[in-house]
Computed example of a mutant assay.
Amino acid sequence: MKKLKIIHTVYGDASGGRWQAMLNTFDALASKGHEGVLVYGEENKNLKSENYPKFCLNSSGFYDLLAAVKLALWLRTYRPDVVIAHSGRAVYLFKNAIFFARIKCPVIAMNHSHNVKRTLRADGFIHITPYVGQCVAVAAKKKSIDLTKKPQAIISNLIHLPESQPSFSEMLSEPVVLGIMTRLVEYKGTHLAISAVQQLKQQGYKVKLLIAGEGEQKATLIQQVKDLNLENEVKFLGWIGGEDKRKFYNDINIALVPTMNDTQPLAILDAFAWGKPVVASDHISVQQIIRQGENGLMAKCGDITDLVDNLTFFIEHPEQICKIARSGYQDAENEYQFCRVADKLNNFLYSVLN
């Protein structure tokens, strides 16, 4: 099959998981032999992009026609086969630029939030969860847009499996080690995890919480730990990767994902890949991944007591940990790992172009 020239683009702040998701998509399609280039604005120029071909072009907003004209001139030289846009602003910019360039090139929107209305101009869609697809359908209906003429596919974000398969131990450490890996912002629910540790301690359980991540809420969370006298139970690790990430997953017994607002929590997929049981909220994004009692447990969103009850279930029934962790790992192998997602992306793009 023909090697494709693919533009991967995002405009607007992509400092969360959106940027990494774009790089992962680039890598997945590059593994299939396709050429790629990143296109982004000044707001993202300091994000990780070394070793990636790139073109930085500033755009002031959705209706920046000067930026669209500049981009059109570059497009007439580069001649891409397809554009994968990871934000609404990117969809607008490239649709306008392709019009000015007078070239034929489909723009595929890959939505990373449930606010999808700005991406409806795209020529096709990659939905990272079924619910994102529902959001697009609802938004399109309100705008009287016929989606039957726009190809769509449900293709998850991807994860990398560790080199060795997890051991799936039924033994819990003492204290039981809980782990949360996330951006430290309020909607991720780390404060709920800290409060859950306090309640577990009051109930006589010996637990420890490892928090991996950075963010604007960190100082508030550190103060919360001090106020609750949990300095011996809670440890902040900062951002971790490589060997530190391996150690984190080797050390924890249970992964916590108490998110209150998300699209597809990658922390759940990561925990699956490392063979760790997950206790998460029942936010709609989590419901796209977890099947209650089969590959994880869900607590009512924002409900500390229910979060504690689900953690207590695992602590009191360690035999369930192995069963549920194995199911999650199987999902990681079958649905979310790099090579599976790369195949789906590759097949979808060829179907669009053919």
Results as ranks from 00 to 15, higher is better:
3 K>A: 11
5 K>Q: 01
15 S>D: 03
16 G>H: 10
16 G>E: 09
16 G>W: 12
24 N>Y: 06
27 D>W: 02
31 S>D: 14
34 H>L: 07
36 G>V: 10
40 Y>D: 12
42 E>K: 11
45 K>T: 05
50 E>H: 01
53 P>L: 10
54 K>V: 08
56 C>P: 06
59 S>K: 07
60 S>L: 13
60 S>T: 09
61 G>N: 05
63 Y>W: 11
64 D>Q: 05
65 L>D: 08
66 L>E: 15
66 L>A: 14
69 V>Y: 11
74 W>P: 03
75 L>A: 12
77 T>Q: 13
79 R>Q: 15
81 D>K: 11
82 V>F: 14
88 G>T: 02
98 I>L: 09
102 R>K: 11
103 I>L: 01
107 V>G: 03
111 N>L: 09
120 L>P: 06
120 L>M: 13
121 R>V: 04
125 F>E: 07
127 H>L: 13
128 I>M: 06
129 T>C: 14
133 G>W: 13
133 G>T: 02
135 C>M: 09
141 K>S: 02
147 L>R: 07
156 S>N: 11
162 P>D: 08
163 E>P: 02
163 E>R: 05
164 S>C: 04
164 S>G: 00
168 F>W: 01
170 E>L: 00
175 P>G: 14
176 V>M: 03
177 V>A: 14
178 L>Y: 06
183 R>W: 01
186 E>C: 02
187 Y>S: 07
188 K>F: 05
192 L>Y: 02
192 L>F: 08
194 I>F: 04
195 S>P: 02
198 Q>N: 11
203 Q>P: 00
204 G>C: 06
207 V>T: 11
208 K>T: 00
211 I>N: 03
213 G>D: 01
217 Q>E: 15
217 Q>N: 14
219 A>G: 00
227 D>I: 00
231 E>G: 00
232 N>T: 00
232 N>G: 07
233 E>G: 01
233 E>K: 05
241 G>E: 14
247 K>S: 02
250 N>I: 01
255 A>V: 12
258 P>D: 10
268 I>N: 07
268 I>C: 03
274 W>K: 01
275 G>R: 09
280 A>S: 15
281 S>T: 08
282 D>W: 11
282 D>S: 00
286 V>T: 05
290 I>R: 08
290 I>M: 11
294 E>T: 00
295 N>R: 03
296 G>S: 12
296 G>P: 04
301 C>L: 11
306 D>G: 01
307 L>F: 04
312 T>E: 14
315 I>M: 13
320 Q>M: 08
320 Q>R: 08
325 A>M: 15
328 G>V: 14
329 Y>T: 04
334 N>M: 09
336 Y>D: 08
342 A>D: 12
342 A>Y: 09
351 S>H: 15
354 N>G: 08
